[in-house]
Write a protein that binds this DNA or RNA. Structure first.
Lengths: 210, 210
DNA sequence: TCAGAGTCTGCACGATCGGTCAGACTCCGG
DNA sequence: CCGGAGTCTGACCGATCGTGCAGACTCTGA
């Protein structure tokens, strides 16, 4: 059925001498394919066969680069989780008036760079809580919520934070299916709009008592 | 392994004479169990065995009440989709100044009543698009987006709508894992907060130019 | 030239998947 | 007392799941 050698002799038959950019090609291709599947069909619903097919490899290759399906998930979302932890640490260490605004900007950047990964641990954080990386992510999100709401724990603050982060994650992944493909904003347009609107959501329009 | 008759003689050995409330028990129990699984682990990641276990039945019973896994999904989310279509129809037929506000209120009610179902077709609407009910849901969401944004199709409006609906759906399902269980707001508190905050998000604080 | 490391693959395995089917049980009208 | 409808189940099927493993291929340093 399948062509047995089409990959080996694929692109170039030249003496090759290390191709400059694509070091560690396969591992990254597999990881990216896995991330997209995890975000759209869920971790449990994604099979190694589908990941391998999407990336153009054999199922065995996935297990060669990542020892198990769970290890692949860990490798795929770890950078996003670490980014979250870093942003949080910087925020908690700093002080000053522009802190909250800067936190929002950094989180929006993280969302844009790691949209699939964030979507994965936000929407599947419960069912995958036994995985160490997911547990770290859950802790980070909870700490972020506390940081954003400061000491005020009102229902309003919780709702505003939940809508902001969950909404942004939705918008950048699943939400794309509900927009016209032609009208899809660029990442820069998105970044600008998200920064403004999320900051606005988290700051109740400076009407203190009302 | 399993007790063979524990269900048949379970609670009451009395003459029984139709128990008043629980008509069509099994089918509804299975549907509810399925809905929760679909929302947390995803449709593809949910097995009929898990659904049956969670509801306390055998796998065969799921297939008896619903002919297939897909039919079960359809039955589970159809009420939510129909509710969406109804709300949309009322909005499009009506006119007047309070229309948008009323639309928001009705959608929030729908979200609270069918939170798992809405979460399912919002986050898995793409991968399940071949199912008729999901296709209907996708159309309804797209029409709702147009209705909320009126004729204005700016990036801001799209972002505001996406954050509002995706954020609310996240908050009511997956987001609950990031809140203290003791602090979990009641549905009425939620309804009130969601109505106010979502209306605020969709209406850019009447600062036209700024 | 050759040994070794690194990469990728096909094949095989036990488990579990969605789905079929025949039977067992309860209930009820005749 | 009986027969049929409704409900629930275990046994079974072929396909696919995640994973282990041995081999084939390419490259590189000695």
């Amino acid at each position: 059925m399948q062509t047995l050698t089409d990959r080996s002799i694929s692109v170039d038959g030249m003496p090759t001498e290390v191709t400059p950019v694509p070091r560690a090609r396969a591992a990254d291709e597999l990881k990216q394919a896995a991330l997209e599947q995890f975000a759209t069909v869920g971790f449990a619903g994604t099979s190694l066969q589908h990941i391998a097919d999407a990336a153009g490899y054999a199922k065995s290759s996935v297990l060669y680069h990542y020892g198990s399906k769970e290890a692949l998930l860990e490798a795929a979302i770890e950078p996003a989780v670490e980014g979250f932890e870093d942003v949080l640490e910087v925020f908690l260490a700093g002080r000053g008036s522009g802190r909250r605004r800067e936190l929002v900007d950094r989180v929006v950047d993280l969302l844009l760079e790691h949209r699939e990964a964030v979507h994965v641990f936000l929407t599947q954080g419960q069912s995958l809580a036994e995985l160490p990386v997911i547990a770290r992510a859950n802790v980070a999100v909870r700490r972020l919520a506390s940081a954003v709401c400061e000491e005020r724990e009102s229902v309003d603050d919780q709702v505003r934070f939940g809508i902001a982060i969950g909404g942004a994650a939705f918008l950048l992944t699943a939400g794309r299916n509900f927009a016209d493909e032609s009208t899809l904003p660029s990442d820069d347009e998105m970044r600008d709009a998200l920064r403004r609107i999320i900051a606005e959501i988290l700051t109740p329009a400076r009407t203190p008592s009302n």
